[in-house]
Design a protein around this nucleic acid. Structure first.
Lengths: 228, 228, 228, 228
DNA sequence: TATGAATGAGTTTTCATTCAT
DNA sequence: TATGAATGAAAACTCATTCAT
């Protein structure tokens, strides 16, 4: 009946100029969402900051909600990279610490991106795809922690819980860096990473008379931040 | 600036019935804010849940925004009580753990209240007074932690940071309890409290040959959650 | 969980003043829909004509679309009245003519109402309830025509078709009256009613020499409108 | 008024390829207007269905509104052809019936075209030229009917009215054919044409005792549809 | 001649707040 | 003191039209 197959309703712009515009909108939205919040960020505001007309937003994103989600997923992908780049052969502690360190650098360079991914307040606004992406990533970390637990590096208790704890504590530092309160190499961040690890690592049990500990052979004390 | 105090435009209701109405509105708002979020909670919704007319809200609160803040400060006060009730003479660790435990009970009884105080998402909506109240409370805990640090119980590094870390980790557990995922006495919550403490406590340094540790005389291993 | 059962989201206004406002909006909408069409009638236009603020429309009707449908159903009910009031014992022809005559009067008094019900252009905009209401009414007339056919008053062929034909022809006259081109008792309307009947009545077959007709014993010639 | 003709701002494309493009756009628009309605048909939709870019529409038509009108007038011309081709010497009844029959065929082949011309809903959107074209055509038919009336074939009353009546009734059948509910040679359409004629033809008056009728010598009984 | 990205005025709808009763 | 109808500014989104390429 339709001689030409009906193309997707709103074929997204393809050219280079178009992609630039799209990017400008995405960046503007990212900045506003993380500073004001989703609801408080209006489309006129995004358009103004991106330097485009309000209608232009809708040539590139089907809705404000989808805009948030696309921005989120892009940020999420960036955040995952350091983890993917880390060596799965190394002990958990080292992997976690290496990743956290790289995130610190990222937080200094792209604070909004970090805020979006580590901020809890957007959780309720994510669509299925985004939520799955977020959860998948947390699962990846969780699995590494579970493996660490299997070799006695991680405290007893659910690995899921320790993944959340570690992420929360690290997130705290990332926020400070993102806020400009800390530099990416701030000693406080190093301390914090140690604290995050101590929160989840297998605890040194009461010493036996002979000065050895049980069940925590890998007790990596050198990790524990510089004393005083 | 105004020599004569500005006469209140619309004196708030005083009678007992009035106070009940006010309370109903506050409770309705609390429940809705924490389940749907501030912006998603409309005044018609609050009025409906409180069983009053929309206009009535404005006889008790000057604005929706102020309503949020009053509800927040009330919740904040409730959350502070366990801390005030705790014995300042006891070591930090015990105080913190006792308070966290009481919060757990509170989270089971008044989940919304806990969500409001420990949820990050409301931060951007608080007015000066509320923000100050929140900060004051965090400072109180911070001072206790600083004191603990002075006696060697707490890890080196800024006490402010450790206060935040501890609150964040505990907050994670409170959210689970508030969500009904854990009971107030759930063993996982006990584990979590231990982890929160381990994140901020003075770390057990490498043992000497004779099995003693340096700089952490109070190392109370009993805190370290149940081993597998 | 909810102490007070959540009432319907937007309890429609109840008081007398409220009903008047609602009526003003409905009348304004009716007039605009029938003169400009649905899409061309904007909510600011309706509000202006009704003398209310735009937001007020939405306290009385959930949406513009629902407004159209409520207005339609009300009009539809009014149009049905003459039919219900007509005597089912009388022959079809008389019933139809009586109803058409009453509609003529109605068209002079409430032209917009007639336009809405008899205008085809709204069909695509009606929701299920309205469409059903419209169809039910047409069915009622159709059944009467089918009965007329059973006694030989109506032309052979599907009764549905003749109902549509009759309504269309009568609708033509109603539109002229609604437009003010004819008065309700205009002789042209009488002619038209006769024509509408002749379109559907059982036709007088070719007379034999002896003045009888074939196959159409019930040929009621007296029905055939005023000559000349 | 303008001594020198206003130079066309943007001369319409002339080449053969251009004409093809123009045609594709017109056909796409016709199909969409009649299925979705004018307002519901967006220019992106038309462009997509025509397989051209949005901007291209404006190289061939000055505006969407003008596009509708040009499409309408073209359709109107096509609809007029059968009438022009009919023999003005034949009696009205035969001409009308022949034309209606040809329209039936057209409705089966080009349903959208028929819908556009016979559908009432576009009336309000036509510009002066289109309205005049439509009226001119109706006048043509009206004149033929007036002539028929002069020779006693048509019922007393304004010829204008009978032209409208006849067109409306025939239109009903054309819509059914266009909708695919009837084939172009459906017996129901034959019945309907007879009904349309009976609505406007000079009525057989009550017979005298001797079996003759008054004032309707040309009573064309053969028109009266097939009995049951 | 055709493209398609950009525009901005206009659309429907929401909702915190006011105020006469 | 409580009500609830009315308000109007602002929100998200649409789409006919323009114009540089």
């Amino acid at each position: 009946l339709t001689p030409h197959p009906v193309p997707p309703r709103d074929p997204e712009p393809r050219g280079r100029a178009a992609r630039q515009t799209r990017d400008r909108i995405a960046r503007a939205a990212l900045g506003l969402f993380t500073s004001r919040g989703y609801r408080e960020t209006t489309t006129p505001l995004i358009a103004a900051r991106a330097g485009v007309a309000e209608g232009t937003i809708y040539r590139h994103f089907p809705s404000k909600h989808e805009l948030l989600n696309e921005v989120f997923r892009a940020a999420q992908r960036t955040v995952q990279e350091p983890w993917k780049a880390s060596d799965p052969e190394r002990p958990v502690r080292e992997r976690l610490d290496a990743v956290a360190s790289r995130w610190g650098t990222l937080a200094a360079r792209e604070p909004d991106l970090i805020r979006l991914v580590f901020g809890d307040r957007y959780r309720g606004l994510l669509d299925g795809r985004s939520a799955t992406a977020a959860r998948d990533f947390e699962n990846t970390i969780e699995r590494a922690i579970a493996a660490g637990k299997a070799v006695g590096d991680i405290r007893s208790g659910p690995a899921t819980l320790w993944a959340s704890v570690w992420l929360r504590v690290i997130g705290l530092g990332l926020e400070r860096i993102a806020a400009g309160a800390w530099g990416p190499d701030d000693p406080a961040f190093t301390l914090l990473r140690a604290a995050a690890w101590d929160a989840i690592r297998s605890v040194p049990l009461p010493q036996n008379a002979n000065g050895t500990t049980i069940n925590d052979p890998a007790s990596d004390d050198s990790a524990s931040g510089a004393p005083t």
